[in-house]
Design a protein around this nucleic acid. Structure first.
Length: 508
RNA sequence: GGUCCGUUCGUCUAGGGGCUAGGACGCAAGGUUUUCAUCCUUGUAACAGGGGUUCGAUUCCCCUACGGACUACCA
């Protein structure tokens, strides 16, 4: 029987773009599910109307798609346990909240946010902290302190209320986290969390537990920021009587900022000098643009690989993994416990590794749109040849232009430092003579050119370097670039000679 | 403040009672390439501190320090 298929979920809240930490959580869920032949579900947790950001859900979906993280059930593709958007499940939750109240695990609370805030302020003023918990709830406005008739009257009269969990005064919750081992909490220190808000929607805690139960989730893999609310969640499962189907929990270490002040956050945007989002994001209100890995030139497979290695490792020295390999190798046992500082340099290295694995044709295909945007159109075969000459020196596809622009335009100016360095008294004369000879070369290929130019240098009793450096300067305008003879071949005889003539006039 | 989690090179990490503490990124040097890049070689650099336990602790235990998360009618 296949009763033990695992089902995991990624449950982001559409309050803005997903950042790479969120992507990593999704990735680990995905890898875990695929590794065990289970299902991976995307569930949108949009119970906070105030923080809803238009476009965020679509962004999340596109980001996952781009990274190669496919889910089996989700808001856009449906599935047997839908709907997968909590706002569409609104009708479900109230009943569960009431069930909790009936069982004595929760209660109605009528305190207004203002009243609670005032309590907090007052406590703060006297150096204390106010907490809505077993020690204070008797003094507050709720169905535990009020007579049952009074609270019933209030509820029925339509007075705003919330439902709070009745956190036990003296209990201990112990649970084995798949990553952290045994974790113990004393309930007396915990507060009576709101489960159901006055706006008729559940809070994360209720919705999350109810949905995980309803969707038959077997493993909850989420960020470490959720660890403090784990006891609440466990107690909820118990209160509902779902203990026997309660999922296992795994709390992932956080991704920290490179600088070292806390976890990476959405608000970091571009402030850190590298993208924190998978895709570019334009804030719908402010119009502020935050760059994305995709637009910066990162390959999705590089991003996935890089993210996988943040907090997880295979225990071998392998660092480059295809998604298939990650799926095969992944396990929660090899996820570390401590937070990882994100390293933008390593991210670049990963990208370069993946770029190196592309064929000339693939790189050419990436380059053509860049050229097109500059009004340049060339034969794909020719572009592939060009790409071959520059591919070793790029980190991003965009770098290809910077490394090859001189193929499309003769130098407008010449690097003066290089001119000083390589331009000697007789240089112009000698190169002039060479260019005449080049005109006679019928097979203008790299190998032939190399042979011709080397023998020319010999006849002039010069080092080849003394010829090649000025030649490069003339052709490219600077001292660096691809292999000179390959460059000449690709440029072709006419253009090569034209540039030499032009340069000879302009350099003194 | 309270609760919980964590701590191996600058960074990501392997390891785990006895190892020259391994790899990768970065950085540095050398070699190849008459340039640059690639590539190769080498180097750089770590077990937070203090107590235990032990013949022996980086590894196990405790404390301290430091870091982090959480502490909303947000997720």
């Amino acid at each position: 029987m296949k009763s033990t298929v695992c089902r995991v979920r990624f449950a982001p809240s559409p309050t803005g773009p997903l950042h790479i930490g969120g992507i990593r959580t999704a990735l680990f869920n995905f890898l875990f599910a695929r590794n065990r032949g289970g299902e991976f579900i995307l569930r949108i947790e949009d119970t906070d109307q105030a923080r809803f950001v238009p476009g965020a859900e679509q962004y999340i979906i596109e980001s996952l798609k781009w990274c190669g993280i496919q889910y089996d059930e989700g808001p856009d593709i449906g599935g047997p346990y839908g709907p997968y958007r909590q706002s569409d499940r609104k009708a479900i939750y109230r009943e569960f909240a009431e069930r909790l109240i009936a069982g004595g695990h929760a209660y109605y609370a009528f305190d207004t946010p203002e009243e609670i805030n005032a309590k907090r302020k007052a406590a703060e003023a006297s150096g204390n902290t106010f907490q809505y918990d077993w020690s204070t709830r008797r003094q507050l406005n709720n169905s535990l302190s009020l007579s049952s008739g009074e609270s019933k009257k209030r509820v029925e009269s339509g007075m705003p209320y919330v439902v709070r969990f009745r956190m036990p005064e003296n209990d201990e919750v112990s649970i084995t986290d798949l990553i952290r081992g045994e974790v113990v909490f004393r309930t007396g220190l915990l507060d009576d969390k709101v489960l159901f808000k006055a706006d008729g929607l559940p809070t994360y805690h209720l919705a999350n537990v109810v949905d995980d139960y309803l969707m038959k989730i077997t493993h909850v893999i989420r960020g470490e920021e959720w660890l403090p609310s784990l006891p609440l969640h466990i107690l909820l499962y118990k209160a509902f009587g779902w203990e026997d189907v309660m999922p296992s929990f795994a709390h992932l270490p956080l991704i920290l900022k490179p600088g070292g002040q806390g976890k990476l956050s959405k608000r970091d945007g571009d402030k850190l000098g590298f993208p924190v989002f998978p895709l570019q994001w334009v804030d719908p209100v402010s119009g502020e643009v935050s760059s994305g890995y995709r637009e910066t030139g990162y390959l999705p497979e590089a991003v996935a690989n890089m993210l996988a290695m943040l907090g997880w490792n295979p225990g071998t020295e392998q660092e480059l993994f295809t998604m298939e390999e990650l799926i095969r190798t992944f396990s929660l046992e090899r996820v570390g416990r401590s937070g990882s500082r994100f390293d933008p340099e390593k991210a670049k290295w990963y990208n370069q590794q993946y770029l190196k694995r592309k064929t000339d044709e693939e790189l050419a295909a990436m380059f053509m749109p860049v050229l097109a945007s500059r009004g340049i159109e060339r034969d794909p075969g020719w572009i592939a040849k060009l790409v071959r000459l520059i591919r070793e020196r790029i980190v991003f596809p965009q770098d290809m232009w910077e490394k090859s622009f001189f193929f499309f335009q003769a130098p407008l100016q010449y690097d003066q430092q290089m001119v000083k360095k390589v331009w000697k008294n007789h240089t112009a004369e000698i190169i002039g003579a060479l260019s005449v000879q080049l005109l006679e070369v019928t097979d203008f290929s790299s190998t032939v050119l190399e042979e011709k130019i080397k023998s020319f240098a010999e006849r002039q009793h010069m080092g080849t370097g003394q010829i090649m450096a000025p030649l490069r300067l003339l052709l490219v305008g600077s001292g660096t670039g691809p292999h000179l003879f390959d460059l000449m071949e690709l440029l072709g005889k006419d253009e090569t000679v034209r540039r030499i003539q032009k340069g000879l006039h302009e350099i003194h």
